[in-house]
Write a protein that binds this DNA or RNA. Structure first.
Lengths: 146, 146
DNA sequence: TAGACACATATGCATCTGCATATAATGCAA
DNA sequence: TTGCATTATATGCAGATGCATATGTGTCTA
């Protein structure tokens, strides 16, 4: 079982989980209070909106958002139901869906960002100096599994 | 709306979310492959087991684990159903439940740790030098909302 | 001591998630 | 071309979660 697991690693991991949950919860709360949908909706809209022509293969959205396949599938169902995106079958490879953002989707994306941004700053950024933020970003970029 | 939100803060936040999700997912996978229950079960057992006499008020478990009240309530239902903990009404204040770990609960707690520990090391610790782990633990301790 | 409030826990219901598997299009080998 | 593995997406069902609110207990105050 030879664990080389040190206490700093355990503390770092525990801190990571705790911070992510606490900050995420508060961000979700802000969104809800502003009458906006959950963060996952934002992340999907964000990926599609920022990609060329506002369209992206569904599998691409999946790998960018790290959502489970069946989970993203049903989230796109909901977004489609709200008229925020459209699903088109890919001409080149009939297996793929292309998710296309609508004007309404772009509008929601734009409306969510200020609330999201303010919540990140308030719950997270404000607790870090610029140097610390950079250090943290750098460390996490190194540790993130590809 | 004056956001002072810098791009390092955004990167740090995105990295935090990505890392937490990816590593958690892989840890859950290891537990499942080992025929063990999800991480939340571990965290509850851990808090109760390590507290004096292996008992803790349910509200205490809640604040330690950061689980939602109704969520913890039903998780304790499940743990109780599996004979891993017992619920007793508190003698002093009838509103409180006291969650008491059973021998079976302790055994499961002990059985889960090696798998959990190995997964943390493999998915997380191994990607960090000792100095980086310490730095990360320190940064996250500062940023974690109380 | 009655009434109002606060606190800890529980629960009905709708929604969401995870799992296994289905459907459907593609590619590749014989 | 047929047959089989591969890739992308969807879905039935069981279980978990979020929300609002219920239940039961304690505390404080007039």
């Amino acid at each position: 079982m030879s664990t080389k697991l040190t206490s700093s690693v355990i503390e770092a991991w525990a801190g990571l989980v705790r911070t992510e949950r606490a900050v995420s919860d508060r961000i979700e709360e802000r969104l809800k209070n502003a009458g906006l949908p959950p963060l996952d909706w934002y992340h999907v809209l964000h990926e599609v909106d920022r990609s060329p022509k506002g369209m992206m293969r569904q599998s691409g959205v999946q790998s960018r958002t790290q959502l489970a396949q069946y989970n993203l599938c049903r989230l796109v169902d909901r977004l489609e139901g709200e008229g925020l995106v459209e699903r088109h079958q890919c001409q080149v490879d009939g297996r793929n869906n292309v998710v296309v953002i609508t004007a309404k989707g772009r509008a929601l994306h734009r409306a969510m960002w200020p609330v999201y941004a303010a919540a990140i700053e308030e719950q997270f950024g404000a607790r870090l100096s610029p140097a610390e933020a950079e250090q943290l970003a750098h460390l996490l970029a190194r540790v993130a599994p590809v």
